[in-house]
């Protein structure tokens, strides 16, 4: 739902190779090594430098500290609270019945088909949207990259519109277009086999997911394409030129030169988008509210804790959702060697 949040953090750093820096090019959080790298020639100088380093460190934390503390306060504290709450049977409308149940909430959730169904649907949506967006996003990135000057502004504006639009608005726009009573899609496409005035898109899982995914893809593809655009800028132009001279076709240049050269950017884009898609909530909430097997994990967590006011059980689902995200991250970094540090220019 916050398509913009995550990945955006990453792209800015792509193009910064030429960026000059008055300080270390390779910052590190270990001060001693810092000193070592500076290779102080004698003790006095070293002392002076370490004094200066200390002052710099202090100033650094004075400046960066508030942001750091706020970030922790708004995430770390709540998730710890959620872990604690998840150990209780606690319903807001019956606060007196609150009791410690240990890990029982987790047992109930993990043995319940509702959880596994929601997990499956969430993964399905994630995989499909990311796959489609990767292809579309690449196409859009190439279009923006290659567009002649006169068209560039127009194309970028058009592509950015979905990016800026509220997800809920996108959900309503797609919903009303496909809805059996107010929509026109059935009338427009009744020549397509399977589509007709009687097709109720939101009455079964498959068709509901089609519209949900369509809205999600429309809204977030611009974002992934911007990430890829940043990657494209990194591909050395002379390599491509050389391949062209050697007689490589456009496809060969794409597959052999462009893609390998921006592998890191692609992996990072995919990871960020996947984590974002995994949190999908708005589109499902507006269009089906989880009916017909379209319930996703975020919606399940929301309905349980905010809807039914089952704070204990809802917190347990929240914690499991969080663990899923951590797991995906872990797998991506360890298995696929997504190099976040490299991608963000820290190496």
């Amino acid at each position: 739902m916050n398509a913009q949040t995550g990945p955006a953090a990453e792209p800015p750093t792509h193009g910064r190779h030429a960026a000059p820096s008055t300080t270390e090019d390779r910052p590190t959080d270990r001060a001693p090594r810092d000193d070592a790298r500076r290779g102080a020639p004698d003790a006095e100088a070293r002392a002076a430098r370490s004094d200066r380093a200390r002052a710099e460190a202090r100033l650094g934390w004075y400046l960066a500290g508030p942001a750091f503390v706020v970030m922790l306060a708004v995430t770390l504290y709540p998730i710890l609270q959620a872990v604690y709450d998840s150990l209780f049977n606690y319903k807001l409308t019956a606060p007196d019945d609150r009791s410690f149940v240990g890990l029982n909430n987790y047992v109930v959730i993990l043995t319940d088909p509702v959880w596994w169904q929601a997990l499956w649907v969430t993964l399905l949506i994630t995989v499909i949207t990311v796959a489609i967006e990767l292809v579309l996003g690449f196409a859009l990135a190439l279009v923006m990259h290659r567009a002649i000057k006169r068209l560039r502004g127009l194309l970028r504006t058009a592509i950015l519109v979905p990016y800026g639009i509220i997800t809920v608005v996108s959900a309503f726009a797609w919903f009303y277009a496909f809805d059996i009573t107010s929509g026109y899609v059935n009338h427009w496409f009744d020549w397509v086999p399977g589509i007709g005035p009687d097709l109720n898109w939101f009455a079964q899982q498959g068709t509901s997911l089609v519209v949900i995914i369509a809205s999600e893809v429309w809204k977030t593809t611009p974002f992934i394409s911007l990430l890829l655009l940043a990657g494209l800028a990194q591909v050395p132009g002379d390599l491509e030129e050389a391949a062209k001279v050697d007689g490589a076709t456009a496809w060969q240049r794409f597959a052999r030169v462009i893609v390998p050269n921006m592998k890191a950017a692609i992996l990072v884009a995919v990871l960020f988008r996947a984590l974002d898609a995994f949190r999908i909530f708005d589109n499902v909430f507006i269009m089906t509210n989880g009916a017909n097997g379209t319930e996703v994990l975020s919606l399940l967590a929301y309905r349980t804790s905010i809807g039914q006011l089952q704070i204990g059980m809802g917190s347990a689902i929240s914690v499991l959702l969080f663990l899923c995200v951590v797991l995906i991250c872990f797998v991506a970094i360890k298995l696929f060697k997504v190099d976040l540090a490299g991608a963000r220019g820290e190496k």
Partner: peptide, 14 residues
């Protein structure tokens, strides 16, 4: 009708 699984009060009226 095909709309039944998503039919609420106003949709019924339609």
């Amino acid at each position: 009708g095909a709309g039944l699984p998503s039919e609420d009060e106003p949709a019924s009226l339609t």
